[in-house]
Design a protein around this nucleic acid. Structure first.
Length: 657
RNA sequence: GGGCCCGUGGCCUAGUCAGGAUAGGGCGUCGGCCUCCUAAGCCGAUAGUCGAGGGUUCAAAUCCCCCCGGGCCCGCCA
């Protein structure tokens, strides 16, 4: 007799376990010679087929050359006799073409599920791992050169959800932001910032820095294109090139017009200064070299505006409810010698060579020599391009510095998850090969590139360089404003301060949900419609369901602790109980496979079931006090589960809306 | 040219890794439901050759092959 505990971290898992045990025993008794692994059970398409089912008979039938229905019947007979010793199994049936269907003992199961949710409360669903690890999730890491746009937002939201989910699973997780201050882009903005005489920011600092960046970049781009165009024009037979350059120049000129209109003062000042400049490109390169070399004046220059920009980011992220535990400056790894040491180590390997004054890393050779291709998902005959480690002028490249950074992260973590766009897939692979070359094969295998697709506008991609993006800030402003309208319309009686609080939670929830609900591998086309969705399949819908549950509970007052869940017999109640009971399995799936969208999906499905229940069955005015009590406990379990699911994807659950 | 990702009703999307019963949702459109716990809701209707073709299998949206369409990467950018 399996003992019936009153609380389980994973109620549906208990039922599943009982079914697996029962089925395995039955099979062993009847077909001791047949070995079938693994014994997986599926949720049938319709509750009329029970709550779990096995298609194992089809496999046995094949091996024994028998009819699957006959085998199912045999197993049914054997299992039916043993079922009574499993507390949560009501009956076992052979059905269809040869399925074994398991029917749950709803009365006991409801009791177990609702009791578990109520008792575990804020921990319900968060099934702990047996192997806690130290995990670093690197996310956002937007360059401190322009505001965080909605494309980065997807990164932040996914990274934050992963952080929350893995923490809930019992890992020691830390969210890291890699501040890329060493690249050419930072040098570029340093150039513009200096020309302007290090101005005090007007407005939000990251927006201000972003304007300087966009204008400087644009003006230099135009200047460069004009020079090339002149060259091409004087070259015979380059008509094609001339046309291409002219087209690109036209595009940048129109971008310039837009920037001039938006930031006339900054634009004109920069235009004036850059027109006077002898060789801006050279100056930018010089700034980059000086910064890498740790030259004091350049250091303070770049750190100054980077810091300003980060202040803006911190405001944005704080408003979005996304936290960062560590801000890791890329320059630190250059200045403290880590990058140089790392390069020295790499040079000692046979995988580094010099070509035309630059240092190259032969990732292909590493993969071949150490036999790594299969383990890292590379086809045997696919050649991995080599990676440039050091420029001719002695400065390093992004991926080079990332090698040092990765080693630094692995001193602090067992597993590192990099939330980085999928366009960097090759660079991440080269990085892993470099780690392997240095002897860190285990680390390379524990380095996970959590890739995601871009957020794009209909027809075009966002571009920081061209200043073509919608900022995370403006999306939040818009969503919150929209939410405020809704709240005012629906709950005019609430105090204004409360309305604002609710709008903030709802508007920002809507955005985060829209970014987390889609499979990361698919691109998201940004439309206000999608982000401002307040109907079914949105955060507001789930939040609303939660608020409705809270409302019932509030009106009910103090709950009775002694509840008999056996009185919940309606199909809608059964569906709800089952849905609640499956939250822990959904959680495990999401955590083990790093799929936050499973949680979003789950929450929406539970809200759906709850709203159906809400419309169909009265709680406070149920037919009997016993039934009312049981339904209240059910509603409470819904509330707990919805709230916990939302927390995992970083969305707050308001009690009123 | 090579590699990776995506392709599911008019639009968006789950399911694909671990193949199973009638492919779930949402938006839209059309029609209903507030003297009753919040109508950001509920109920019903509408709409699908799961990109195409082949193969494996008792069984394919799911696995294999080939092709088509879209995106990304193959930089002394990040």
């Amino acid at each position: 007799m399996v003992c019936l505990k009153s609380v389980s971290a994973n109620p549906f898992g208990v039922f599943r376990g009982q079914c697996v045990t029962l089925l395995s025993r039955a099979m062993q008794d009847i077909f001791p010679s047949v070995v079938i692994q693994p014994m997986s059970l599926a949720i049938p398409p319709n509750p009329q087929f029970g709550q779990l089912s096995s298609s194992v008979c089809f496999e046995i039938a094949k091996k024994l050359h028998k009819n699957p229905r006959d085998i199912a019947k045999q197993i049914e007979k054997e299992a039916e006799a043993a079922a009574s010793s499993f507390t949560l199994i009501e009956k076992v049936k052979a059905e269809g073409q040869g399925y074994i269907n398991f029917y749950i003992d709803l009365a006991r199961f409801s009791q177990l599920t609702l009791e578990s949710a109520r008792t575990l409360d804020t921990e319900y669903g968060f099934v702990k791992t047996s192997k806690p690890e130290r995990v670093i999730v690197e996310h956002t890491s937007a360059n401190p050169i322009h505001p965080i746009h909605i494309g980065h937002g997807r990164n932040s939201v996914l990274g934050d959800a992963l952080t929350r989910i893995l923490k809930a699973q019992g890992h020691e997780v830390s969210a890291h932001y890699y501040v890329d201050d060493v690249g050419r882009q930072s040098a570029l903005i340093a150039y513009g910032y200096k020309l302007l005489g290090k101005p005090e920011p007007e407005g939000k600092p990251d927006h201000f820095i972003g304007a300087i960046y966009a204008i400087t970049n644009c003006l230099l781009e135009i200047r460069r294109l004009k020079e090339r165009l002149e060259n091409a024009r004087s070259t015979p037979g380059a008509e094609e090139e001339v046309r291409d350059l002219q087209r690109r120049l036209d595009e940048w000129v129109s971008i310039a017009a837009g920037l001039k209109e938006k930031h006339p003062d900054l634009f004109n000042k920069l235009l004036e200064e850059i027109s006077k400049a002898e060789s801006p490109e050279l100056e930018v390169n010089l700034l980059l070299q000086r910064y890498e070399a740790g030259e004091e004046e350049t250091k303070s220059l770049i750190r100054e505006f980077s810091q300003l920009c980060l202040e803006g980011f911190k405001q944005t992220l704080a408003r979005a409810g996304i936290s960062v535990d560590s801000w890791d400056w890329e320059s630190m790894f250059v200045w403290n010698g880590d990058v140089a040491r790392c390069l020295d180590e790499l040079k000692k390997t046979p995988f580094v060579f010099e070509e035309g004054g630059v240092l190259e890393f032969d990732a292909e050779m590493v993969a071949q020599t150490l036999g790594l291709k299969e383990a890292f998902g590379v086809k045997p005959d696919q050649e991995i391009p080599s990676l440039t480690l050091v420029r001719a002028d002695g400065t390093t490249l992004y991926t080079t510095r990332d090698i040092s950074y990765s080693l630094w992260k692995f001193k602090r973590a067992d597993r590192v998850i990099n939330v980085i766009g999928m366009e960097q897939k090759l660079a991440q692979l080269q990085l892993k090969m470099a780690l392997c070359a240095l002897g860190y094969v285990k680390e390379a295998r524990n380095l996970i590139h959590f890739s995601y697709n871009l957020v794009r506008f209909p027809g075009q991609r966002m571009s920081g360089r061209k200043g073509r993006y919608v900022t995370f800030d403006e999306v939040m402003d818009e969503a919150v404003a929209r939410a405020y309208e809704e709240v005012s319309k629906r709950s005019p009686q609430l105090p204004n301060e409360t309305k604002h609080k609710i709008s903030e939670v709802v508007g920002i929830g809507a955005i985060k949900y829209a970014l987390v609900e889609t499979d990361p591998q698919k691109h998201v086309v940004f439309t206000w419609d999608k982000v401002l969705n307040f109907e079914t399949n949105s955060a507001p819908y789930i939040q609303y369901s939660h608020a409705r549950a809270c409302s019932i509970l509030r009106k009910a007052g103090k709950q009775n602790r002694k509840v008999d869940a056996a009185v919940l017999k309606e199909p809608l109640e059964r569906d709800l109980v089952l849905m609640i009971s499956r939250f822990p399995e959904a959680f495990i799936d999401a955590a083990d496979n790093l799929k936050p969208n499973i949680i979003a999906d789950y929450a929406n499905a539970l809200a759906d079931k709850f709203n159906t229940f809400y419309a169909a069955l009265p709680v406070l005015k149920a037919d009997s006090p016993e039934l009312a009590n049981a339904r209240l406990m059910l509603v409470d379990a819904v509330r707990i589960t919805l709230r916990n699911a939302l927390i995992l994807i970083g969305i707050k659950a308001p009690q009123r809306m």
